[in-house]
Each structure stands twice: as C-alpha cells, then as structure tokens.
C-alpha cells in the first residue's frame, strides 16, 4: 500500500508537471487560437499604463503588449489588458492567466530565478533620482548636503538614499511618508527640500504639483531599476517572441525606421533593414511567426524611440530625457542584437 503510494505520488506529479509543460509550450498556439494576447499591466502608472478617456490603456508598458500582438497576430489592437496588483502579478503569470507581464516590474535575480518567470529584456532603465524645488537653484545631487529629503517608508529608495549620502560624505534629514500621495503632499507643503523615488514616478508626481514648473528632476540616478516584460518559464518559443519584439523596436530605431517611413524602407537596399522587415529571408520562422513580424510592429506601434517619446518623453506631459534609455549609439545603454 505504502509502496504503491510512493510510486503513485511522483507519477501523478510527473503527469501534472508534464501537462503544465505541454500546455505552456503552446502559448503561441493558444494566443493564435484566442486571437488575443493577454497582457498583465499596471492599473495606474502614469506614462507606463493608465486608462485614458477613450477607455483604452496608454503607456510604454502597454505599447510593448501591442508590439507583441502585432508580431504574433498582425494586429496591435488584439490585446486583452489585465490590470494586476503588485502582489497578484506573479501569480497571474505563473498560473497562465496572462501570457506576458508588462507591468513596471524590476528585473532582479530573485524574481528571475525563484518565481517561475523569465525576464525577456529591459524596456526602461529606471533608477532612483531626486526632485528639488526649482527656486533652490540646485543643479546636481552633489549639492544636497544637509537637505531634508522626503521619501517613502519601507522601500528600497529609503536604503539607497542612506547609501548615496554616506558614500558622498554628505548629511541629510530623512522625512518619511507612507504613500506616494503623502510624500508629494509633504514636498509641496515644504516639509522637505528634496523628494526622492524612482525617476519614472518622480516625473508623474511632478505633474501632480499645482505648478509642475516649480520643481526640477536632477540628472543623477543612484540605483539600478531595470524594468522589463516577463513570461512564464517553460516556453522558450514564446520567450523568444517577447524578447525579439522589443529587440525589433530597438533595431528599427537604430536603423532609422519609423512607423511613418516603414513602407518606403521596405524597398531599401540596406541588407540589415531588408532582413528586419522580412524582405530578405524569413527571420520570424524560428519563432513560428510570419516574415513580416517586425514590419507589423513598426508599422502599427512604432520603433522604441517613438514609443518612448510618445508615452514618457518629449511628446508626453512628463518630458523624461532618454538618458540611459538612449540607444548605445547615442550614449545610452539600449542595445539590441542584430537580426540575421
């Protein structure tokens, strides 16, 4: 009896795991059958994913989802956005409730190795930064010795702050709040000279001031917060699709292909461009996609630069500088392997 059970348990486990493996391996088929990519996003992160007044999501993270849909289904609109809580997001991707998670998730070793998910790349290099009142005339974080700094309790921001000031031999007075709304309220009320949190959030908080021009974000970034899309482990084909959707957008920017000129570029003699746009060989085949996968992304969603500027950069309310998110050829660190 006990012997039987000992055999039975592993074999049931194998059956279940095998079943999961089998079903996961078919994410692409599932998506194509369904006609929709289910994409887990943040419900409310200005610039990254937020509901606009036309009942649609706008933002950098949501455009990544659209790019995947364009590559897989040829239609950037075939996305089902699933708003997820910060705790719920990992369950949702593990249980297959969403096909891809694109929700301002920082790529860390723990998440990558213990949660059953794989990060496919970095769509936005974020990091902790400082915002000061513009009438202080401060140009650099190095001038902040003795400042009162508003921050949120229990976050890595609080720890990074202590490290940064100690490393630079400066003093500061922490003013700790419980939520982003409270910390921006404290900053506006003059409780502190400086507000410190992730840069992407700082720009959004700046817009909540009665007069956004009364504060500036300093150029220094003091921590690494690489944000990127993630997929469930166990389906390498789908992992590749999500990974290369982002790479295609980066390559397109590097080659100067935009959503406006992509049709002209299709006739280009440049072999790199021809390969990316599917005019020279089928580079989507290895992923189970059609030859024009990258062309569809660029035509319907745009290259990385367009997406960045539209959602968080110059074309948006936030006016975030490219900084680290510029291409490697422009002094940033965004770099994509070539399509060939």
């Amino acid at each position: 009896m006990s012997n039987n059970r000992r055999i039975a348990v592993p074999s049931v486990a194998a059956l279940v795991l095998g079943g999961i493996g089998l079903t996961l391996a078919a994410t692409l088929d599932d998506v194509q059958d369904r006609g929709q990519v289910r994409c887990g996003v943040n419900a409310a992160q200005p610039g990254f994913s937020a509901l606009d007044d036309e009942d649609d999501y706008r933002g950098l993270d949501t455009d990544i989802c659209r790019a995947i849909a364009a590559a897989v289904l040829g239609d950037a609109k075939s996305v089902l956005f699933v708003p997820l809580d910060s705790v719920e997001r990992f369950t949702a991707i593990q249980s297959g409730e969403v096909d891809v998670l694109s929700r301002t998730t920082t790529w860390t070793s723990t998440r990558d190795t213990t949660l059953g998910i794989n990060f496919t790349g970095v769509s936005y290099y974020d990091g902790q930064a400082f915002m000061v009142a513009s009438d202080l005339g401060v140009q650099s974080a190095k001038e902040l010795d003795g400042a009162a700094v508003c921050t949120q309790s229990g976050t890595t921001s609080e720890l990074n702050l202590a490290d940064y000031f100690r490393a630079n031999g400066m003093e500061y007075e922490p003013v700790v709040f419980g939520s982003p709304e409270q910390s921006i309220g404290g900053f506006e009320a003059g409780r502190c000279d400086v507000l410190s949190t992730d840069a992407s959030q700082l720009y959004a908080q700046r817009m909540q001031l009665a007069d956004p021009d009364s504060a500036v974000v300093l150029p220094e970034v003091i921590s690494k917060e690489p944000l990127g899309p993630a997929v469930a482990q166990g389906d390498d084909q789908w992992f590749n699709i999500v990974k290369w959707s982002l790479f295609a957008m980066l390559n397109a920017e590097e080659m100067g292909i935009t959503s406006d000129n992509v049709d002209e570029m299709r006739t280009s003699d440049d072999p790199d461009i021809a390969r990316l746009l599917g005019e020279d060989g089928n580079h989507g085949q290895g992923m189970g996609l059609s030859a024009d996968w990258a062309y569809q992304i660029i035509r319907q969603v745009g290259n990385y630069g367009e997406v960045f500027e539209r959602n968080v950069g110059e074309g948006s309310e936030f006016k975030i500088a490219r900084g680290l998110n510029a291409l490697w050829s422009d002094g940033g660190i965004q770099y994509a392997p070539p399509v060939r």
């Binding site: 419900a43 409310a44 992160q45 200005p46 610039g47 937020a50 509901l51 606009d52 007044d53 706008r58 699933v82 708003p83 997820l84 809580d85 719920e88 959004a204 817009m207 909540q208 959602n311 948006s316 309310e317 936030f318």
Partner: peptide, 19 residues
C-alpha cells in the same frame, strides 16, 4: 483588478493628461 466606482476613479487619476 476589478474597476468598481472607486477603482475606476483611481485609474483615471493616473492618466497622464489628468494628473
């Protein structure tokens, strides 16, 4: 992740055009 009245109000608050 369901947007009831309060949830949809909060979601709307993060629209970059209406911060």
């Amino acid at each position: 992740g369901l947007f009831d009245l309060l949830g949809i109000v909060q979601a709307a608050l993060s629209d970059s055009r209406w911060l």
